[in-house]
Design a protein around this nucleic acid. Structure first.
Length: 846
RNA sequence: GCGGGCGUGGCGAAAUGGUAGACGCAUGGGACUUAAACUCCCUCGGGCGCAAGCCCAUGCCGGUUCGAGUCCGGCCGCCCGCACCA
């Protein structure tokens, strides 16, 4: 008998699949289509276990659907623009392009041995001019359609990377990649009008039924819809042109509790005042140093400065409120100005306490005492209004807000406004390694779009990274060009696009990766939408929200059909691959981390020193708790790696990689191999055991099919173990065992495709197992003639009864009452109640 | 603070309201072997008992139900997301 040698057979099958072109997606009108997509990787140069898990999940789905008769599209590409390439060029020299394409070649070389059913003929990288040129064409169409515009904006400036960051890319006041403290800077930036779609992007979430509830909720919170009142205070002693101050509030019902007004340091009034008042200028400058992020503002102490200006309360001309500049007011939200009601808002309370401002309650709890500090009940909670002006005395906050808006509108005090937290998407980046924004700046014509026939605007190759900032900006010739409109001398836009733009439409490009237009209508119409999208939860907000917007923008500009405005029908977010961390300490007590391969039985292989074991965490290079998939493939084969990441943990949960688990996975595959060889050698057989084995096989078909359909791959794996155990113990005829083994090869095929092909061929299967029709469970074999019914007494299992499966309940009752244990317990008394759930259980109540 | 999720053996985990712990790992025992590796078989939540069996057990407390890991209410703990959004 030959040994299980994955290194040889895996390469052999991969070559055979390639030669037969079976994974090349074809538009086939005779078949239903299925588009399965995993979030494409950034080409860092090495694949990691997270990739293996992600792509194996997609591969399981793709191969399963292929067997089920679908025409499957399962593509792969590279999210190839971005700063790491420039950082590498800065640190090590060389060119981002060489670095990136080198990494892509390396990673492709590591992915191919996994045996994924990918249509590699569709592969592209977002840094290919053929791709980003089409992206530029769409940018021009979107510019034309009014979906892109330029404005001056206060932006997050990363002083290390010398680039602008989106608010979403600022974490803890620091750049998400560089970690540098973010500063405020004003620049002219390009923006997508995603906020125009805020309402629609929010409403459409309800229709994404096959998305995780969690992701939809996160997006809804991010979009942040609120209903409130916008109105104007008239001002007293304000500079010319500022006789009104527009404010927005979500709690107009607390208007009678107002004790001050406050404006953002970026509010036009604050900007005016800082020019004339050095103290205000100092204060505003200090506020700006905090940064633009909400989180930074949150963490800062509430501070303000009285401007000396006052506003008149809209309900009472004589009632005047002071106007402060306050560091916690965001210019981007509402009007950048508020009124403060310290009795019912924690921030306002802190502020009022600090500056000695009045705190007047507007409402009180229905029961109990008025709490110390601010009183902020849920809006859905009913309270008693003591200083209300609209609606009932006792009402919920929600009702009070609605009544207050209606009252104010009727009395000419402002109007109801729906606001969103979502802001427009700033896409300009002052970087080299990105898609150039295809416009030129002409002294006479202003901003002029490049002509489409001049696309792509290619990145120049002759650049250096010996100084920070954008090499395009200091390029001697690239930025000089002629104006497409007047033909005069002009300058190219040197900003490039946020890499989230690249990943916002790659799924659409995969439907026609070589087309001369961004998409091909017939192809997009056939393949869209993505039936199953798989990726990490870390993209729950940005990437997915941007993609949803972009699909709408592509539809508006004629690049996607209407049905594709929600591009991902189903979304699955997989968990991480984790590993224990092994640590020792150096002579100064500083932690030293060790790779799992250097540790055995809790000690360092090299020195015998005992390591401290820190519970599992996401694999990360800094903690050295990483396992290189290439080593696993070398030692055990790709099927073992694939089998391991599919077993044990539910796919949405984290899975812990253990060496023991990997070995166990490998042992099992070798065992399947042995069982198959055993059968091939003609061993065994008594036909009397055939039916039992066939029943087990068909139950497995039924359960595994359901498990794969429901993304419960760990359960499918468990069922395969069960079937293997049954098969290896079965005394059935060789023919029946051969048939069962063929079924098992098919059921295992999505997870361990190479072994499955080997077994399939060995068992006399025709063609590739991946192309064989998925087995169908015979309903007749799923039911047993007899069932074992547990007998409970008062809900506790005490005995059991074996009866024909369709025995009437009355018969079962008789048998139950004749049961020895039941007779003993009843001791001659009749039961209080006898419950028979046919085919399930019997419960005797005494 | 708000929103969401999750708490089951030594571990990863199963369980349409119906026999809690499938399946795997680890553990212990055995077979094979000169010995080991490989492989195969058995054991494997806790307690009492010679045994048949009984009791306890799904974070804690209550409730609904013939029957609750599952449903409801209240706690405790952990994880994730959002976070002065006016």
């Amino acid at each position: 008998m030959s040994r299980y040698e994955p290194s040889q057979s895996e390469a052999k099958w991969q070559a055979a699949w390639d030669a037969a072109h079976i994974f090349e997606a074809r538009r086939d009108p005779a078949k239903p289509k299925y588009y399965v997509l995993e979030m494409f990787p950034y080409p860092s140069g090495r694949i990691h276990m997270g990739h293996v898990r992600n792509y194996t999940m997609g591969d399981v789905v793709a191969r399963y659907k292929m067997s089920c008769g679908f025409s499957v599209l399962h593509p792969m590409g590279w999210d190839a623009f971005g700063m790491p390439a420039e950082n590498a060029a800065m640190e090590r020299g060389g060119h981002p392009k060489d670095w990136t394409y080198g990494n892509i070649a390396d990673m492709r070389g590591q992915m191919k041995p996994l045996g994924l059913s990918i249509d590699w003929s569709r592969e592209f990288a977002t840094c290919d001019p053929e791709y980003y040129g089409q992206q530029q064409a769409m940018f021009l169409d979107m510019l034309d359609a009014g979906l892109v515009y330029r404005k001056n904006a206060v932006v997050n400036w990363d002083p290390v990377d010398m680039t602008v960051l989106a608010n979403e890319q600022v974490i803890d006041g620091k750049g998400w990649r560089s970690g540098a403290q973010v500063e405020r800077k004003e620049l002219t930036q390009w923006f997508f009008r995603i906020s125009d779609y805020a309402g629609e992007l929010l409403d459409a979430l309800d229709r994404l039924r096959d998305w995780p509830e969690k992701v939809r909720l996160m997006q809804a919170n991010w979009i942040g819809k609120s209903r409130g009142l916008q109105f104007a205070f008239s001002t007293v002693d304000a500079p010319e042109g500022f006789d009104r101050l527009e404010v927005y509030t979500t709690r107009p019902d607390t208007l009678m509790g107002a004790s001050f007004a406050a404006i953002s340091p970026d509010h036009p009034l604050a900007r005016h005042l800082e020019r004339h008042n050095p103290k205000i200028a100092d204060f505003v400058a200090e506020c700006r140093r905090i940064g633009t992020t909400e989180e930074a503002l949150e963490k800062a102490e509430k501070r303000g400065m009285d401007t000396g200006i006052r506003v008149r309360h809209p309900m009472d001309e004589a009632w005047e409120l002071p106007v402060y500049i306050a560091n916690f007011i965001l210019m981007d939200y509402g009007t950048g100005a508020i009124f403060g009601c310290p009795a019912h808002d924690a921030r306002d309370h802190e502020f009022a306490t600090k500056y000695g401002l009045p705190i007047e309650p507007v409402f009180a709890p229905l029961e109990g005492d008025y709490p110390a500090g601010e009183y902020v009940p849920l809006k859905s909670e009913a309270v008693r209004y003591v200083r209300g002006f609209a609606g009932d005395e006792v009402q919920t906050g929600e009702d009070a807000v609605a009544a207050a808006i209606a009252f104010c509108e009727a009395n000419g005090i402002g109007h109801g406004v729906t606001n969103y937290r979502l802001r427009d998407w700033g896409l300009s980046r002052q970087r080299y390694w990105g898609c150039p924004i295809p416009v030129v700046h002409c002294a006479t014509c202003g901003v002029v779009p490049e002509k489409k026939e001049n696309l792509p605007v290619r990145l120049p190759d002759d650049v250096t990274f010996d100084q920070p900032g954008n090499p395009l900006d200091r390029h001697p010739t690239w930025r000089d060009c002629t104006c497409p409109k007047c033909g005069g001398a002009a300058r190219r836009e040197t900003d490039t696009m946020d890499t989230f733009v690249d990943s916002s439409w790659y799924y659409a490009r995969f439907t026609s990766p070589h087309a001369a237009t961004p998409t091909d209508a017939a192809e997009a119409d056939y393949w869209m939408n993505v039936d199953q999208y798989i990726g990490g939860i870390e993209h729950a907000i940005l990437h997915l929200l941007y993609s949803r917007f972009f699909a709408r923008a592509m539809h508006k500009t004629g690049h996607l059909p209407a049905k594709a405005i929600e591009p991902f029908d189903a979304l699955f977010t997989q968990g991480m691959v984790t590993h224990e961390i092994y640590m020792t300490r150096d002579s100064q007590g500083r932690p030293v981390y060790h790779l799992p391969e250097d540790v055995e039985n809790g000690v360092l292989k090299a020195t015998g020193e005992t390591v401290e074991i820190i519970p599992s965490a996401k694999m990360s290079k800094s903690k050295k708790n990483v396992v290189d998939p290439m080593n696993i493939i070398r030692d055990f084969g790709a099927d073992t790696a694939r089998w391991f990441v599919m077993s044990d943990s539910p796919p949405e949960r984290d899975v812990e990689w253990t060496a023991a688990g990997a070995e166990a996975a490998n042992k099992f595959l070798a065992r399947v191999w042995r069982i198959a060889n055993d059968i091939a050698e003609g061993a065994g057989g008594d036909a009397a055991a055939d039916l039992a084995l066939r029943k087990a096989a068909h139950k497995a078909i039924d359960e595994i099919t359901k498990s794969i359909d429901g993304f419960a791959f760990n359960k499918a794996v468990a069922k395969i173990y069960e079937l293997a155990n049954t098969l290896s113990k079965s005394a059935a005829s060789n023919e029946a065992r051969r048939e069962t083994m063929r079924v098992m090869a098919q059921l295992m095929g999505p997870m361990v495709p190479h072994l499955a092909e080997d077994v399939w061929a060995l068992m006399g299967g025709h063609g590739f197992v991946v192309q064989a029709p998925w087995p169908k469970a015979d309903p007749a074999l799923l039911v047993d003639d007899t069932v074992v019914l547990p007998i409970q007494i008062n809900g506790k299992r005490r005995s059991e009864l074996t009866v024909p499966k369709d025995m009437p309940a009355t018969e079962v009752e008789k048998l139950a009452l004749a049961d020895e244990t039941v007779i003993k317990v009843l001791a001659g008394q009749p039961p209080k109640k006898l419950i028979v759930v046919p085919g399930r259980i019997i419960n005797v109540v005494i």
